[in-house]
């Protein structure tokens, strides 16, 4: 049954990747990671290759809105998912050229030195702020009970939630400040929007 299926033995195939709102058709060897497909085939080199083993976080991007590692994901398995890379987080259309608040905060607070881990740090931080706002606990959260009062995004929470992103330069102090600032600015913005809507 399996052997009569012509696709059963194919080791490459045509796929369509949805990246930053655009569709890209390409043929990939199944061994190609999403990271390599983005960098080497689609010329989206913002996503960085650090360890290539899921240990450093440099290749972090968003898949269906959730932060993921592109080095441990096969491109063929990413077909049908909405992929957002660092190239796609800034404003588009009418907001063209406007940086994402997390990007802006990294600039304002010097959340980097050499910058190599920065795209991964920023993609991760965008998701960290959303995960925290959605009420997801972390290993730094004292009480995981759903009835416990929500804990603020303290520096300790940020350090724990961002622990999958290593920075060889050691810019952590500024990264934590940048993430805290972006989260706070976002919360203020949300409150303002809610007030305006009311």
């Amino acid at each position: 049954m399996i052997t009569s299926d012509p696709t059963a033995s194919q080791t490459a195939g045509a796929i369509i990747l949805h990246v930053n709102g655009e569709k890209h058709a390409l043929t990939v060897d199944h061994r190609t990671t999403l990271l390599d497909a983005l960098r080497e085939r689609l010329d989206l080199t913002g996503t960085k290759k650090g360890c290539d083993h899921g240990q450093c976080g440099a290749c972090t991007l968003l898949v269906d809105g959730r932060r993921s590692l592109s080095c441990l994901q096969l491109a063929v398995a990413a077909e049908g998912r909405e992929i957002t890379t660092i190239e796609g987080v800034a404003g588009q259309g009418a907001d063209e050229g406007e940086l994402h608040p997390v990007q802006q905060a990294f600039l304002e607070f010097d959340g980097f030195q050499c910058g190599y881990c920065t795209p991964g740090q920023i993609c991760s931080a965008i998701a960290v702020i959303e995960e925290h706002a959605a009420g997801w606990p972390s290993a730094a959260t004292g009480d995981v009970h759903p009835g416990a009062p929500p804990e603020p995004l303290t520096p300790e929470e940020i350090r724990e939630r961002m622990s999958g992103n290593l920075c060889r330069c050691g810019a952590y102090t500024s990264i934590v400040r940048a993430v805290a600032h972006a989260a706070e600015a976002g919360a203020v913005r949300d409150a303002r929007d809610e007030e305006a809507a009311a």
Partner: peptide, 16 residues
């Protein structure tokens, strides 16, 4: 169980 899962890996890996 929640605490054990949160103690493992990173946010990115837990999403996958």
């Amino acid at each position: 169980l929640s605490q054990a899962v949160l103690a493992g890996a990173s946010g990115q890996l837990r999403n996958m």
